[in-house]
Amino acid sequence: MAGNNTVGTVAGEDPPAAPPRPAAGSTGDQPPKRKMSKRQRAKVIRGVQYAILIAAVLLIIVAADWGQIQRAFFNMDVAANLFPTVITVALGNTIFYTVLGFALGLGLGLVLALMRLSSVAPYRWISGIYIEFFRGLPAMLVFLAVGVGIPYAFDTRLDRNVQIMVALGLVGAAYIAETIRAGIQAVPKGQIEAARSLGMSPTRTMITVIIPQAFRIVLPPLTNELILLTKDSSLAFFLGSTLAQQELAQFGREALNTNQSMTPVLVVGVCYLIITIPLSFVSRALEKRFGKGVARKQAKASATRSGGQ
């Protein structure tokens, strides 16, 4: 019997006690704490942001003097007195001045873009200097130079519409030129090689092949340039005007001084949005349409190359 007692216990003695369990606060038997995933942290951060935003909105709603805001910005009597002149005169003049400036800027910008890509070095230098100069100047200085500097320098006075067209066109051409240049360089070289292989001259290739394709590429950014020129037309008030020549910004300024109310500014802002928001939708639609067309052409060309290999 003694041989069976191999653990070292003596007959009549209690077996050794089990080892003590770790205390409740010990990490011995506890599973490790789960950390929040990135998605959970993002949800928490987003929830905190929403809570802060809601609290800020509620604070504004509670603290704002809505009666004073209504009298200052939403005075219906003042707004009624602005119509229909704000539409028939101010809005119409803004659109007219923008179209004049964009027409000159587009034509001059195309010439500058071709000069920038020319193999003749002086053309590239002239174009580069012009673009950098007018992109670096504030548009207000250009309006003052055209409206005040030209009459002093040449002892002549241009028609006001011509002054606005020249000022907007000079500024817009610098930006439009770079946009068109990028569009021309984005046309695949294979198009040029194909046209030249058909016997087309470089000039005919540029006019009939490259430029049409480049304009399809740059239509969305050109629409953005049109929006910028619409807002820059507000600088025409530096040239002075009669009531019939006022654009939106000057009309709103005169109405603000007359009525001592911010309502005219709000009405004029809505009129600007009537122009710019549809142009923004047109820009996005053109970008989506022509972007899909370019993608389809690239996919077709890739499939053709793959099939020929």
Rank of each mutant, 00 (worst) to 15 (best):
G3M: 10
N4M: 05
N5W: 04
G8P: 05
A17L: 10
A17M: 13
A24I: 07
G25K: 13
D29Y: 09
P31A: 07
K38V: 01
R39G: 07
K43T: 03
V48R: 13
Y50M: 09
I52V: 11
I52K: 14
A56M: 14
L58P: 08
L58F: 10
I60Q: 13
A63V: 03
M76Y: 09
D77G: 12
L82G: 07
A103I: 04
L104F: 01
L112E: 06
M115K: 09
R116G: 03
W125N: 02
W125E: 05
G128K: 14
I129V: 13
I129F: 15
I131L: 12
F134I: 08
A145N: 01
G149S: 04
I150T: 03
A153L: 12
F154L: 06
T156Y: 15
R157Y: 07
D159W: 04
N161T: 05
Q163P: 07
M165A: 07
L168W: 11
G172F: 09
E178P: 08
T179P: 09
A182F: 07
Q185H: 03
P188F: 00
A195S: 07
S201L: 04
T203E: 15
R204W: 02
V209S: 10
I210C: 10
I217K: 14
L219W: 12
L219I: 02
P220L: 00
T223L: 11
I227D: 02
L228A: 08
L229E: 06
T230N: 11
D232K: 02
S233K: 10
L235G: 02
Q246M: 00
E247K: 03
Q250W: 05
G252V: 01
V268S: 03
V270W: 10
Y272V: 03
I277H: 14
V282G: 06
L286Y: 07
E287H: 01
S306Y: 14
G308S: 05
Q309D: 08
